[in-house]
């Protein structure tokens, strides 16, 4: 090494580069490369066979993949909208509380304190057609005398997953929107009252524009969350019945580990990540617009 003397700044940054390369760059490149191979975990030497875009071609022609893709987008869309509306109501209610607001805020966060796996197990039990709480309640209340096959019927299973997902994460929206409400200056609201606004108009013209950026931050976070949803679905239905609730990551994990087709699974994963990036970019654009609109200084 005599004669080569790196500049001090290069030398100082080198450890960071080495660590980053080891934990991020190399795995990323390796997985990207493997998506161009027929790599199977059971036959390690297949990683050296380069097959170009064949995995991607197969993927794009694969109805099962597109069904999972579409289901993920559907889950994301419905869950985000529901969580948004419910979170907004929750936040507005909690903000109105003059007493015990701290306690309410803490209670509101309870669902976030449980592991999604446990949430999955709990809802799986609740929606069990035989011994579940939901059917039991419906029957006791005389609303039905049938055992509704919550997790067995495809559409109902999707709904059940949706409910579990919304239950566990509505508070994300509620907390962000509540933060927005609490940071909001009160004078414009009073000005709106004097200007002749009904409470609904005050909300529509003054409060809503102000909390929109906060809602978009929550949407960005939650869209990433749902786009990578796996645990709740894995536990509740495992993509079943007959792949009716298969979403992107349950499909990817099945392809990678059960079918051992790592190359194909990696190709799917890159498409899934692309979806996430798309949503993130979209929401960040909206966020920037909303922030500029309220002249936010953050």
């Amino acid at each position: 090494m005599r004669g080569w003397k790196p500049a001090p700044h290069v030398l100082l940054l080198l450890p960071a580069f080495v660590v980053l390369a080891a934990v991020v760059v190399v795995p990323l490149l390796l997985s990207l490369y493997s998506s161009f191979t027929p790599f199977r975990l059971t036959r390690p030497d297949t990683i050296y066979t380069f097959i170009g875009f064949r995995n991607y071609q197969r993927l794009f022609a694969d109805m099962e993949f597109w069904a999972a893709f579409g289901r993920t987008v559907l889950l994301l869309t419905i869950a985000l909208n529901l969580e948004m509306v419910l979170g907004l109501f929750l936040a507005l209610l909690v903000e109105k509380a003059t007493r015990g607001q701290r306690l309410l805020r803490t209670i509101m966060m309870f669902p976030m304190m449980f592991s999604p796996i446990l949430v999955g197990f709990q809802f799986k039990f609740m929606f069990n057609d035989n011994i579940g709480l939901v059917n039991n309640a419906l029957q006791s209340l005389g609303l039905t005398d049938q055992a509704i096959p919550w997790l067995i019927d495809g559409k109902l299973a999707f709904t059940s997953i949706l409910i579990a997902e919304v239950w566990s994460s509505t508070s994300v929206f509620a907390i962000f929107i509540l933060a927005g409400l609490m940071a909001m200056p009160k004078e414009p609201l009073e000005a709106a009252k004097v200007d002749g606004c009904t409470p609904l108009q005050s909300f529509r013209y003054v409060t809503w524009p102000f909390i929109m950026p906060f809602a978009f931050i929550a949407m960005t976070i939650r869209s990433l969350d749902i786009a990578r949803a796996y645990d709740i679905v894995k536990i509740m239905t495992d993509g079943g019945p007959a792949k009716r609730t298969e979403i992107l990551w349950t499909l990817i994990s099945r392809t990678a580990y059960s079918d051992a087709r790592m190359g194909l699974a990696n190709a799917m994963a890159y498409v899934a990540i692309f979806l996430s990036i798309l949503f993130t970019v979209m929401f960040f654009r909206q966020l920037a617009k909303a922030r500029q609109q309220i002249g936010a200084e953050w």
Binding site: E187, P188, E190, A191, V194, Y205, F210, I294, G295
Partner: peptide, 14 residues
């Protein structure tokens, strides 16, 4: 039917 001018202006920022 009143108008009010506030100390902090209270303009609608958006």
């Amino acid at each position: 039917n009143i108008s009010m001018v506030f100390q902090s202006y209270a303009l609608y920022p958006h």
